[in-house]
């Protein structure tokens, strides 16, 4: 059970500056071999934005703890990204996350709690680059 009163809760901003090393490490990790990503001025691969949520400070794990959820007990149910503008090596991306929704639904193994975290990612110029929505299922919620 996750307290529905956490709906609307905001978290401390997270910030991450992308460099070539992180880009290259991520490309290898996802098996991405397109040379287009290595060209000068190329955008970063879309899903690398998740790095901000995990390496950018107290990210998702801390957000879960703050609403009383252990990361071991969750599954990632849905992920949505809207890409507003490309982002690049050298960009400093700031993410601001809030709890967009909390709801319960009957599953095969009883009540499941769904939590939707929405994060607005902006670059160092303040321009929105990505909006992310992560739906997390809390097992035995």
């Amino acid at each position: 059970m996750v307290d529905p009163a956490h709906k609307g809760k905001t978290f401390d901003p997270i910030t991450y500056t992308f460099d070539r090393n992180k880009r290259d490490e991520f490309l290898i990790a996802i098996g991405e071999s397109s040379p287009a990503y290595l060209q000068e001025g190329a955008p970063l691969p879309p899903t690398i934005i998740t790095v901000v949520s995990f390496w950018g400070g107290e990210g998702l794990e801390s957000a879960l703890q703050q609403i009383g959820v252990d990361i071991w007990s969750v599954l990632h149910a849905e992920q949505e990204y809207e890409f507003h503008e490309p982002f690049y090596v050298g960009d400093t991306i700031t993410g601001r996350t809030h709890v967009a929704d909390i709801y319960e639904r009957k599953g095969r193994s009883g009540e499941l709690t769904f939590v939707i975290f929405e994060t607005a990612f902006a670059n160092q110029h303040g321009s929105p680059v990505v909006t992310g929505r992560s739906t997390i299922v809390v097992r035995g919620g």
């Binding site: 996802i30 098996g31 991405e32 397109s34 287009a36 990503y37 190329a42 955008p43 691969p45 879309p46 899903t47 599954l75 990632h76 149910a77 849905e78 992920q79 949505e80 990204y81 809207e82 890409f83 490309p86 929505r133």
Partner: peptide
């Protein structure tokens, strides 16, 4: 990320505007 690579292989890097998946 694999699904995203399918999209960018087809439409080009920087082409993805929105992607929503259910695991």
């Amino acid at each position: 990320a694999y699904a995203t690579t399918m999209l960018t292989d087809w439409a080009g890097v920087g082409a993805v505007r929105r992607l929503k998946v259910r695991f």
